[in-house]
């Protein structure tokens, strides 16, 4: 690979290449597709702030006749859907999963990458082997384990089994292999051990990487459905996704409330996207390409 010329500049169909007409066509095409991509978000907002009559009106209504902010309070006052509880559960699960995964996977990745130990390769292969089988397939074996630990319908059952993510540990190992050794050696000279140099030198200098992993883990955890569905048997332990799904398949559906619930469920992630998109994009590029 020629890397000297490897400027981070968009190439391929390069900007500035191609006729004015083809560029204009490209731009218009992108605008149309972008509009299509935004339709579902528009529908969530429109329906969440409409009355049922507006939504089911004979002619298509682009905007609600009266913006119904009251749908928001109605949703949280409805006893049939434990919205507040499930949002709290989701927040706790996502935050604790992110913190726990980061702690366990960075330490494991660093140990594998940096500490020369005779059996390190064997441990690494034991982790690599788990990547062969996606976690969705192991939901049943894991459920067997969790149920014998008595963690069904329990936040521990939702969080702890998901923390030992072989893929994230693998990514961390790859990242720490390329971390400049000189920095750590300087710390070693100053008398820091592995643990000290990891926390004082390596971690503070890896903020971008850690943020990328954290954002990806958070989004994945917030949006996950199968595992919370398996574990969340009682409504006390529902995450917001399970609550939404139950709401969606219930017999009598209040459309504005349903869409208000959807809006509330994606709001945290819209904030993540607004403020942390750089890390998210970086994380996707890192996780996807190595996968």
């Amino acid at each position: 690979m020629v890397s000297t010329e490897n400027r981070r500049k968009p190439v391929g169909f390069r900007p500035g290449v191609g006729s004015r007409a083809s560029r204009a066509l490209n731009f218009i095409g992108l605008c149309v597709i972008a509009a299509l991509f935004l339709i579902p978000f528009y529908l969530i907002v429109r329906n969440a702030l409409s009355t049922t009559e507006d939504i089911t009106a004979p002619g298509w209504m682009w905007f609600p006749t009266d913006v119904q902010w009251g749908n928001f309070t109605e949703l949280f006052n409805d006893d049939k859907v434990p919205m507040a509880r499930s949002l709290l559960n989701s927040a706790m699960v996502s935050v604790l999963t992110t913190v726990g995964t980061l702690f366990l996977c960075t330490t494991a990745g660093y140990g594998l990458a940096r500490i020369p130990y005779r059996h390190a390769d064997k441990v690494f292969y034991a982790i690599l082997a788990t990547l062969m089988v996606p976690s969705a397939i192991t939901f049943l074996p894991s459920f067997v384990m969790v149920s014998s630990l008595g963690w069904v319908s329990d936040l521990r059952g939702l969080i702890i089994p998901t923390l030992f993510n072989g893929f994230v540990a693998f990514l961390c190992r790859q990242y720490f292999l390329s971390f400049p050794r000189e920095l750590e050696e300087a710390a070693r000279v100053d008398g820091l051990g592995y643990w000290g140099s990891f926390w004082r030198i390596v971690i503070p200098n890896s903020k971008g990487f850690l943020a990328a992993i954290a954002v990806i883990t958070f989004v994945t955890s917030w949006n996950s459905f199968l595992w919370p569905l398996v574990i969340g048997r009682s409504s006390d332990s529902w995450t917001v996704q399970v609550a939404l799904s139950t709401f969606l398949t219930s017999q009598t559906v209040n459309l504005p409330q349903l869409f208000m619930a959807a809006a509330v469920a994606i709001l945290p992630l819209v904030f993540v996207f607004l403020f942390l998109q750089r890390f998210l994009v970086q994380g996707v590029a890192q996780t996807g390409l190595k996968g």
């Binding site: 991509f37 579902p40 949006n223 996950s224 939404l244 799904s245 969606l248 994606i266 992630l269 998109q277």
Partner: peptide
């Protein structure tokens, strides 16, 4: 184009 990634399959 990346924004839908914020949406869960349930939503």
């Amino acid at each position: 184009f990346f924004l839908p990634f914020a949406c869960s399959y349930v939503v």
